[in-house]
Amino acid sequence: MRVTPVPFDPVLGAVLDAMPRDEGTAPSTDTIAAIRDSASMFPMPSVADVIGTREIDAEDRTVPGPDGAPDLVVTVLRPRHLKAPAPGLYNIHGGGMISGHRHQDTPRLVDLVEELGVVAVNVEYRLAPEHPHPAPVEDCYAGLRWMARHAAELGVDPHRIVVMGGSAGGGLSAGVALMARDREGPSLAGQLLLCPMLDDGNTTVSSHQYDGRGTWQRGMNVLAWQALLGERAGDPAAEVSVYAAPTRAGDLADLPPAFIEAGSAELFRDEDVAYASRIWATGGQAELHIWQGAFHGFDIFAPDHEVTRAALAARLSWLRRVLAL
């Protein structure tokens, strides 16, 4: 497919040009270890350093995993002077389901805890290919169930929990929302899906536009889906769980309100737009933002850009509305 990519915003393009590149190494299962070791993509200061002098307490907890699976570790972030019961945010980190760590999202969560007075639970889940589907999404669902069951202990209102995440974390959040619907709980107030990774097919126009361009490129995306699903990845005739690839779901009715955002210059753009449209087709609620000229993960790599400020304001507005703040 020959396609012309949407150009990057000039300032964001300069940010991309200044980022280190691994020239000439094609993504493969042999490169996953190097991807995980790369500190340049997601530098992670300690939780204490991120919190600094802010009135926020952090606690690591070990909680039950799925039946027959290892326990999970979560980090709980709470306002020191919590006005309980408070809304809860259940966060799932990104990394293509093959890399990443919960603490890469600590800065985003600490800001939300401080701004909104919410309690955040940040889950660590098993990664593919060592742990293919259903391990990642089942881990995330198990952590959500723990949060809901221990809501009173955590100071959380169980009726005001939003599941959230970026990239793979957004895809897993969508999968967890489908699980919560199909398994009759926990109840969710919303799903905050930031440039979510939803479609194993890699057939959209935008999935071809960013082959060799941007922070998360087509080759990496194909590798990630293969690590998660094996030979089934991208095969329209294969049986693939909707909890792994939410775009495979035939029914998107009765889901919690969704906030979906992506950049206009990233490969997930078209699948994210289609997901919002399919939610609307059922009479469901979805708020969609496509940020002009923005690449995948723009808010992380360009925190002072005007489009990042606009995106953060839109997320806060939506959270205030769905959580009745």
Rank of each mutant, 00 (worst) to 15 (best):
D182N: 14
R181D: 12
M44H: 06
D157Y: 05
G13Y: 06
L12Y: 12
A148F: 08
F295N: 07
V74S: 04
Q191K: 03
T53M: 06
D157P: 06
A33Q: 15
P87V: 01
Q285E: 11
S207P: 00
I260Y: 07
T106E: 07
M197V: 01
R78C: 04
A253V: 04
L172T: 13
M220G: 09
P129W: 07
V73Y: 03
G283Y: 11
N91S: 15
H103C: 06
V47T: 15
H289F: 14
T31W: 09
R278F: 04
S38L: 15
M164C: 13
R36P: 03
G169W: 08
P20S: 11
S167L: 12
Q285K: 14
P186F: 10
A244R: 01
P132R: 08
W225Y: 01
L109K: 09
I290A: 05
N91V: 01
I51K: 05
D272W: 06
V76K: 00
L72N: 00
A233Y: 00
P236T: 09
A286N: 12
P134N: 14
A253N: 03
A135M: 02
K83N: 07
R232Y: 04
E23S: 11
G13Q: 03
A18E: 10
Y275N: 02
F268E: 03
A314W: 08
V11R: 12
V240L: 06
D304G: 07
V11D: 05
Y243R: 05
F301W: 15
M197Y: 10
R21W: 05
A34Y: 10
E130I: 02
V73M: 11
V156F: 10
S28I: 12
A58C: 03
A34R: 15
L223V: 04
Y125M: 08
A294G: 14
L312R: 10
A18T: 01
W318Q: 09
S99H: 03
V74Q: 01
V137M: 10
A128F: 13
A224D: 08
I260A: 01
R126F: 06
R61L: 15
D30L: 04
V76F: 02
R321H: 10
V322K: 07
A152H: 14
D270V: 11
C195G: 04
P129T: 14
D9R: 10
V222Y: 04
N91K: 05
S207E: 07
F8M: 01
Y210T: 12
L144C: 09
F295T: 11
A227P: 08
V47Q: 15
